[in-house]
Nucleic acid binder design. Structure first.
Length: 602
RNA sequence: GCUGCUGUAGCUCAGUGGUAGAGCGCAUCCUUGGUAAGGAUGAGGUCAAGGGUUCAAAUCCCUUCAGCAGCUCCA
């Protein structure tokens, strides 16, 4: 791939919609200042779907949700005034003086930064009584902003400059589009998306739960375990085909190990520690150190490499309470982890292989993803700069060979190495990191991982940490939203439910269910003395792919009358024929397995 | 962790100082029916927890806990 395909983070295109959203942000600030004249302005940029503005209300009462209609009303009044947006340019020192005089502390700070960056002049935009340090551009006049293309949406907190050690601001969000229709479409879509929130669907389908007694730790209910098992069976099968072996390592390990790995000093605030027999120990937040011990159990020959060692490890991390978010962000989760040990020459082939494996997995679910390369963090890292450079080049080389576009996130790597992340989106289009491939040249050093080369000398091994679902828990959350609970047959917690029309048919229904269970399907039956209408309606929240209605006619002929999810009606067929029909659907690859050719070792 | 909002029955939610409510679900009974709401009766709540104000608190105040939207962080 050419370097041009790399999408570095670039400023957004300043098109008409950008101008509309940006101008509305100014109008928002103007309206807010009418209500709180002493509010200090921070930033107010356009964003996806709209805009926001950050305010510091100081000692005054902050504006909240209940004030949003009033803000919106005032904004519409401002639009009617048809204020002109006018740009003027001031020498930076004059601007500083002006802003200082107005007491706009945040603007002063920003202006100062602009000055330090070498700007001799800065621009201001004025509309009506409102004047703001601003790069622009804007629309010409407030009449260009139709009153029905925006909605003041919600408030939240934010930090000045996104830094948790700096002041907390009140952020007011608006959504805005070029036309009323687009706004309404967006609001409709968003309302629909909220209905498939995995926390709502998960409760409705009996997949998982949370309790105050274990904050941030999911409880998996029988239906949730069924889906997880299906995910993990698929994962193991695919990984076995790709030459992986599997291990399991302990949950609690000694402090010495975590000191060797660097976690004790670089990851301490996220670790649960405890004392056992007066020794410091930690509950594992990652599986890698245990994996290192296993690698070192015996000397390795280059002929054994690459060695791909998988582990479905349950890890605990003490996340900040405010970061917890359903299954997307928990304090204990299962990683579909693997560590690949190899020679430096094998890096590119091996990483391309992992990307390909991830791509295979995501495509089975129909998930789109974005690739992101994360480089060395500024602090709390282990390993030399040279190692980081080599490792980063290795990942970049693999990405270039893979040939799809990727973003670069400077400084976002793990403390032991750079990484490639696979970003998936939830129902509300929010991005979540799932798969990750982390190249590590530091831990092999610390744990002295070696192999004997063809020259009969000892060489330093290179390793990759990788997870493709990432966290099974988070991935499940995203899948729930992706499918809105209507999982494909192979994932569905209940694949078929038998619905007898009258109580006399319960025995036959039981017989049908048993046959399906024996054929390996997840089946239940509803023998309540309800009407068939009621039984069908009651089944709806479970999104069961096959509802099998059995009445007198079916019982006499040894058949079932399937009603598919989506309400399609099939002609009655025998249980054996039904099983034949369902069997391929119970396989992620629908009975065909994609061939994969391992990269050759030179 | 920070800012803002919220916490009433299994679920969704009404209830702003004066004897805890609705719909759905659940249980029992009637009904035994052919593809998305048949009928009757009934059980279920220390109104998140603790403290305070008051003759009186689900309601007002404080603290804590938890959830939600973001910020920050990350699988």
């Amino acid at each position: 791939m050419s370097p041009e395909a790399v999408r570095e983070k670039a400023p957004k295109v300043k098109d008409d919609l950008y101008k509309i959203r940006h101008s509305l942000a100014h109008v928002l600030a103007q309206a807010v200042l009418q209500m709180r004249p002493n509010a200090k302005l921070a930033f107010g940029p356009p964003i996806d779907n709209g805009f926001y503005y950050d305010f510091d209300f100081g000692d005054e009462e902050a504006l909240g949700e209940e004030d949003l209609p009033e803000i919106q009303k005032r904004m519409r009044a401002i639009l009617k005034e048809n204020q002109q947006f006018e740009k003027r340019v001031l020498p930076v020192d004059e601007a500083l003086e002006y802003l200082t005089g107005r007491g706009e502390v945040y603007k002063v700070e920003h202006c100062q930064r602009l000055k330090e960056a070498g700007n001799a002049e800065v621009s201001f935009y004025t509309n009506g009584p409102f004047d703001d340090l601003c790069e622009g551009p804007h629309v010409e006049k407030t009449r260009d902003l139709k009153p029905n293309i925006f909605k003041i949406d919600r408030t939240s907190g934010a930090y000045w400059l996104g830094d948790s050690s700096r002041p907390s601001l009140t952020r007011i969000y608006g959504v805005a589009f070029a036309t009323k229709e687009e706004l309404n479409d967006y609001l409709f879509w968003r309302a629909e998306a909220e209905k498939r929130d995995h926390r709502v669907v998960g409760k409705q389908m009996g997949l998982f739960s949370f309790h105050d007694e274990a904050r941030g730790n999911p409880f998996y209910l029988p239906h949730g375990v069924a889906v997880k098992d299906a995910l993990l069976d698929f994962w193991k099968r695919l990984h076995r085909m790709r030459g992986y072996v599997f291990i399991e390592t302990p949950t609690i390990l000694d402090r010495k190990l975590w000191e060797t790995s660097g976690h004790w000093f670089n990851y301490r605030e996220n670790m649960y520690t405890l004392q056992i027999d007066e020794e410091d120990c930690a509950v594992k937040p990652m599986n890698c150190p245990g994996g290192m011990l296993v690698y070192n159990e015996s000397p390795k020959s280059f002929r054994e490499l690459p060695l791909r060692v998988g582990e479905l490890g349950h890890v605990h991390r003490h996340e900040m309470s405010g970061a917890l978010d359903g299954l997307r962000r928990v304090r204990a989760f299962t990683q579909d982890d693997a560590h690949i040990f190899m020679t430096p020459e094998q890096i590119t082939d091996e990483i391309v292989g992992v990307i390909d494996l991830a791509d295979t997995i995501y495509s089975v679910f129909g998930l789109e993803y974005e690739l992101c390369l994360s480089t060395k963090p500024e602090e709390k890292t282990i390993g030399s700069d040279e190692m980081w450079e080599k490792a980063t080049d290795g990942l970049r080389g693999a990405l270039d060979r893979w040939g799809k576009p990727y973003e670069v996130d400077e400084g976002a790597g793990a403390f032991y190495g750079p990484k490639i992340d696979f970003m998936l989106r939830d129902a509300l289009n929010r991005k979540h990191q799932c798969g990750t491939i982390q190249l590590d040249m530091a831990l092999p050093e610390r744990f002295d991982l070696t192999y004997i080369g063809p020259d009969n000398a000892s060489h330093r091994a290179v390793m990759v940490h990788r997870a493709l679902y990432g966290s099974i828990d988070r991935f499940l959350g995203i899948l729930i939203e992706h499918f809105a609970g209507a999982f494909p047959v192979w994932l569905a917690p209940i694949q078929a439910r038998v619905l007898p029309i009258t109580d006399e048919l319960n025995d036959y229904a039981q017989e049908v269910a048993t046959k399906l269970l024996e054929a390996g399907f997840r089946v239940d039956l509803n023998t309540k003395s309800d009407k068939i209408n009621r039984k069908i309606r009651d089944a709806a929240p479970m999104h069961i792919p096959y509802l099998l209605v059995v009445g007198k006619r079916e019982a006499e002929e040894g058949k079932v009358a399937p009603r598919l999810r989506g309400n399609e009606q099939l002609d009655p067929l025998s249980v054996e024929d039904l099983i034949e029909r369902m069997r391929p659907e119970n396989d992620p690859f629908h009975g065909t397995t994609p061939r994969w050719f391992p990269p050759k070792i030179d």
